[in-house]
């Protein structure tokens, strides 16, 4: 899973997709995940990073993570040719 390389994300949590012209805002965790995706981290790497850093169980995070990925997909922020 990879975020489109031309997506700009700023420290305020503002995201701009230059392909579609949409902008978004995200919370710090969302920002963290998008940055990790941007740096080509795998799902496992992202999960272990979040579980190490935040107070959250694996099951719970997984549910939220897939939901978030689906939202990213819906808004066309992920590379199209990726298989998941």
């Amino acid at each position: 899973m990879k975020i489109k390389q031309n997506i700009a994300i700023s420290d305020s949590g503002f995201i701009f997709n230059p392909t579609t012209g949409d902008s978004f805002s995200t919370n710090p965790i969302g920002q963290e995940i998008i940055k990790l995706l941007h740096n080509s981290k795998t799902e496992d790497e992202i999960r272990s990073f979040i579980l190490e850093t935040y107070q959250i169980s694996r099951d719970h995070f997984e549910k939220d993570y897939y939901d978030f990925i689906n939202v990213l997909k819906k808004y066309k922020l992920l590379e199209e040719n990726e298989k998941d």
């Binding site: 700023s10 305020s12 949590g13 503002f14 701009f16 902008s23 805002s25």
Partner: peptide, 11 residues
Amino acid sequence: NLKEFEKISTL
């Protein structure tokens, strides 16, 4: 500039 839109949107 998008920066301006970003500011009013986030701050």
